[in-house]
Design a protein around this nucleic acid. Structure first.
Length: 578
RNA sequence: CGGGGCGUAGCGCAGUCUGGUAGCGCAUCUGCUUUGGGAGCAGGAGGUCGGCCGUUCAAAUCGGCUCGCCCCGACCA
């Protein structure tokens, strides 16, 4: 393809609207343009990259036995009312009415529709298992779209849904998708980790997020420094200290101290001249069946998901000030475990603490030298706080490390949530009607492309992994007015295209500097440069985008050499250049 | 939704405080020169200064309203 015939509007300067590298580079390389907040146009170069990602996904999904379908973007409200999500989904669901004033929404996901397909046409165990997928545009009216394709409102997504007759089958379907995802992201040339994610009330390790490690990631990946444990921050477990502090200081007598107006941990610590580590926070929560108090060390954070799971609540939120006053007898900021008559859950981290500070359940007062066991008892001592870097690994003796990551994929066992709500059932061998067990599996297409750029770039521009590059080869004649250069460039271009190679010929009458800058910016893996050395010595330069090394090749050998190199890259795996 | 910021040529920005004929760099168009890392010279085109209402002899500039965008936070199958 000729550069002069393609629309590749590169930008010399950084667009003011972009914050992260991938967004800046996609705009500068002329891949995308914004149409509205979180809504983008895909220009020729950008679309080619998106199609590459989609094709890899499609091939691997097909290989796994999944079947491609296509569901509508516009969905009727009735289905969502049936699943209960018309109520539950919130403002992210963009709703509108047609001319008959019937309600519809733009699909943010397709569980309802796919379940509807299956319930209508799947009757027998003989038709199971089934895995249906699509690559579709989704719309989620995000509160704050940002970072270009990384968090758009409209975005391309591959979503797959598995349907199985029993638990074993569902687990197998899950495992197959897990492996398929690993292959997809490896083929995309990404460094990624599959991390355990929170599963909600279902339990078990049946949810994994696929995270691409990158500085600009919005999520935290918690991993162990010595084993392969990895989880997201919400899920990350903390091992209970195996060596309880035997040499504890002697408990001192309990003492009530006046702390006028000192509500926060910082205020109390400053006032009493103690460290946050010597303080225990008491948080009052409102659960399904009444208030619950949670204790955590002053410098730790409660993990509400862990707490909710432990106490077995559907809903759990911080109690209002009125409730706090009512149950603790003191205003917000002065609650403490001593004498508190309600469910008391403590983080295991307070087990080792001696002579700590807590609220006194009395306005403007705290207790010092409080001790667990002597002054109060708890219902449970467990892991209910948010993990921190350096915490002990739950699986081995190692310590937890924190990294930033971009969530590009998620595999999730749904169970029977939708099959129950929408009555998707089948008849088993005995003729008994049973609920179908479902799983869902998503990949953000644009986000995967953005993540690849986050991982593969330098200060000059994008360094595309070959599998995602919009073209494999860029031919750059330094001066197109020099006929010896442009003629040979044309020949090579033609020969490579004939062999099915994606080649871009920079036939623009631009100065060499401009062409080199654009070449580096758009990041095509292999560059063929024709310049003075060809005129003088008859040699053509060949260079990988990620390397400084330049090899000299004669015209007659060029096509074979390019083919050889592209082949070696394909076979050599994707790490060669990273 | 709360806080902060921005809207002036395709892009990046100055001008706004202190009202008086709308500017700079890059890009773009024409011509000549130039051709290995974002060229030089000459000439040209491009704007209802986000929109509406108001104040004023006069508004990009002052006031009110409104729309859009960006950042931080809260939220998030």
């Amino acid at each position: 393809m000729r550069y002069s015939k393609v629309l590749i509007p590169t930008l010399r300067e950084e667009p003011a609207e972009a914050e992260v590298v991938s967004h800046k580079l996609m705009l500068r390389a002329g891949m995308i343009r914004k149409l509205a907040a979180g809504v983008y146009n895909y220009l020729p170069l950008g679309l080619r990259v998106i199609r590459k990602v989609e094709q890899i996904i499609r091939e691997e999904m097909d290989r796994s036995g999944a079947l491609e379908v296509l569901m509508p973007w516009v969905q009727p409200a009735e289905l969502w009312e049936e699943s209960g999500r018309w109520e539950d989904y919130g403002k992210e669901l963009l709703r509108f009415q047609d001319r008959h004033e019937r309600w519809f929404c733009l699909g943010p996901t397709h569980e309802e529709v796919i379940t509807d397909i299956v319930r209508k046409d799947v009757r027998s165990y003989r038709q199971l298992p089934l895995n249906l997928y699509q690559i579709q545009t989704k719309f989620r009216d995000e509160i704050r779209p940002r970072f270009g394709l990384m968090r758009g409102r409209e975005f391309g997504m591959k979503d797959a849904y598995s349907f199985d007759a029993d638990e074993q089958g569902a687990e197998e379907s899950y495992r197959v998708m897990f492996d398929t995802y690993c292959r997809i992201f490896a083929r995309c040339g990404l460094k990624f980790r599959a991390v355990e994610a929170e599963t909600g009330p279902i339990g078990g390790s049946f949810s994994h997020e696929f995270m691409v490690l990158a500085e600009t990631g919005e999520d935290i990946v918690v991993s162990c420094d010595s084993c392969d444990y990895a989880a997201n921050l919400e899920k990350a477990e903390i091992e209970r200290s195996k060596t309880p502090n035997k040499e504890k200081a002697k408990p001192k007598p309990l003492e009530l101290v006046s702390t006028p107006g000192m509500k926060t941990v910082e205020e109390v610590c400053g006032f009493l001249k103690v460290k946050p580590q010597s303080l225990v926070k008491t948080l009052i929560y409102q659960g399904d069946s009444g208030p619950i108090a949670a204790l955590v060390r002053g410098d730790h954070e409660i993990n509400e998901t862990k707490l909710r799971r432990l106490v077995g609540c559907e809903r759990l939120e911080l109690a209002s000030e009125e409730v706090i006053e009512q149950v603790s007898g003191a205003p917000l900021g002065f609650a403490g475990p001593v004498g508190l008559k309600m469910r008391l859950i403590a983080d295991q981290g307070i087990e080792d603490m001696v002579n700590f500070v807590t609220g006194a359940n009395k306005a403007d007062a705290h207790l010092v030298n409080v001790n667990l066991g002597r002054d109060f008892q708890v219902e449970e001592l467990s892991d209910v706080r948010v993990a921190r870097e350096g915490d002990p690994c739950p699986r081995c003796e190692g310590k937890l490390l924190f990294n930033r990551g971009i969530e590009v994929g998620h595999v999730f066992k749904l169970g029977t949530k939708y099959s129950k709500a929408l009555k998707a059932t089948y008849l088993d061998e005995q003729g008994t009607e049973r609920l179908i067990i479902m799983g869902c599996y998503g990949i953000g297409v644009g986000r995967t492309a953005a993540a690849a750029i986050e991982q593969h770039h330098d200060d000059k521009g994008i360094i595309f992994p070959p599998a995602l590059a919009p073209f494999q080869v860029l031919i750059l004649p330094v001066n197109v007015k020099e006929e010896r250069l442009s003629g040979v460039a044309e020949n090579i271009h033609h020969s490579l295209e004939e062999r099915g190679i994606e080649v871009l010929l920079d036939d623009r009458d631009e100065r060499p500097g401009v062409k080199f800058k654009d070449a580096d910016l758009i990041g095509i893996p292999l560059r063929v440069t024709l310049g003075n050395r060809f005129i003088k010595e008859g040699v053509i330069e060949l260079k990988w985008r990620w390397s400084e090394e330049i090899d000299l090749v004669r015209e007659e050998d060029m096509v074979d050499e390019v083919l050889k190199r592209l082949k070696s890259i394909k076979e050599g795996g994707d790490d060669e250049h990273s």
